[in-house]
Design a binder for these strands. Sequence first.
DNA 1: GGCAGAATAGAACGACCGTTCGTTTAATGT
DNA 2: ACATTAAACGAACGGTCGTTCTATTCTGCC
Lengths: 217, 217
Amino acid sequence: MSPQVLKARKGEETRAQILEAAVQQASEAGFESLTIGTLAERTGLSKSGLFAHFGSRTDLQIAALDESSRRFTEAVFLPALKVPRGLKRLRALFGNWIVWPERAKLRGSCPMQAASAEYDDQPGPMRVAVAERQRHLARELAKAVQLAVDSGELRAGTDAGQFVFEMFGLVLACYHTQRLLGDAGARARALAGFERLVDANRATAGKPASRPAAARR
Amino acid sequence: MSPQVLKARKGEETRAQILEAAVQQASEAGFESLTIGTLAERTGLSKSGLFAHFGSRTDLQIAALDESSRRFTEAVFLPALKVPRGLKRLRALFGNWIVWPERAKLRGSCPMQAASAEYDDQPGPMRVAVAERQRHLARELAKAVQLAVDSGELRAGTDAGQFVFEMFGLVLACYHTQRLLGDAGARARALAGFERLVDANRATAGKPASRPAAARR
DNA sequence: GGCAGAATAGAACGACCGTTCGTTTAATGT
DNA sequence: ACATTAAACGAACGGTCGTTCTATTCTGCC
């Protein structure tokens, strides 16, 4: 029967399998390691057969980046939206962030951070795509911080941009320490750092911010 | 019998020029972008002529990593050793760290961090070399933190490992934000984060730690 | 000035890269 | 069951990669 797979022609299914392999590969060795040949071998396709699904290698890389980004949102943001806004949600976001590659069964690190490091100095479509998504991520995180300010859990003067900057730092240090040095304590360090970050910006008393956050950028 | 060759024979001079170009290239596009062909073109040598200076591409990459590491120490640590130990030196280290690529006239980011990101999941001699140097860096930084504890500027219970972890995070976030998003405010953010980190671990009063730092690990 | 040895050049190699093209197989709609 | 079209294949292309080998040029020492 065809339960819900209405238009899923064979091709799209194959394409999904290719992207699965591509994301895994990008997680392990970066997006520059995505070559037509090795990916074809991994998926059991011929080079030309695989190639036909994307018009070029660059398009394949972009598609893999999109898929990675989609999974990131799915694993980090969607679950956090079910948590009450404010500090709880912020904590959920941070927690999901540092564990999502493992949860998503990626054998390497976060593909988005891998892409950032790879293309931060390399002009081209990949750099543009990566920068755009990172900016979007920073914006969404800043919103979540602001919600914690509005709820009165963080003090009114909190600089959301600075807060997000430091969250990024903790996540990067976590991945860095974990993968390169094999330090299992990295996650605990990151969480400890986050709590210290929260404490530094916590509202002194239980008073909600009275003013509706004037300078919101 | 050529006695101790004190004078740099022509070859070593050429080798130095090659490494200069290699470090620059690694800063801009990573160590995997170091190819014999492009590097030969950059230096005006033939492929085989350049190749002869290193026995293999991997040896060239290792040599470039060593040179990068040497310059890092020269630009970050050596100047900081002239600063009185304790918080001042720690601040100098952090300050030098986030600006050294620019000071060293590298057009890209810090080669050591680039290497970390590239090889954190790639087994082989490069990964080993990178991990070793990063561990060394972390150890030296922890020593500097401990000196600030011993001098009584940081409180006795300070977890040097955690402190270094968070320093790493701030530097990584700084590079990340600066290069990918082109945010000029990244450096100020990093410095602000560092001051907050110091404050959180500052000794409550002006009392030096009386005990000589028992659990120094 | 001449000579040994270091330094560099040049051509060629096999392997892999992304891409193209014509053909063949498999899935789909009727 | 059959015609149509999507999907995958296989061979070939020009290019670059790291590496090897041989030949040439240059340098430093007597």
